[in-house]
Design a protein around this nucleic acid. Sequence first.
DNA 1: GTTGAGCGTT
Length: 96
Amino acid sequence: MSKRLFCGGLAWATTTEDLQEAFAPFGEVTDAKVVTDRETGRSRGFGFVTFTTEEAASTARESMDGATLGGRTIRVDLARERQGGGGGGGGGGYRR
DNA sequence: GTTGAGCGTT
């Protein structure tokens, strides 16, 4: 099981390793990903980080939300579930 | 060579 966090407001230069390195000290990051445009390869300015425990995820969220990374203040929140079904929680209820 | 709230491609 793992907890996922959504990271927004990232600088265009922020990459997956930057996220992984930035969240690593808060817990064991099993997966990190900065969403880049599939066609241009440029960063979309947001990404996701997966932790092994919600405790690490919570600590990272409380510590990194509003923090500065790559020169820009980033936003950290509970990520939503891509697999339809779950959804809810985090940034705000929204259905798709 | 740009943009700035958000929730991702295999």
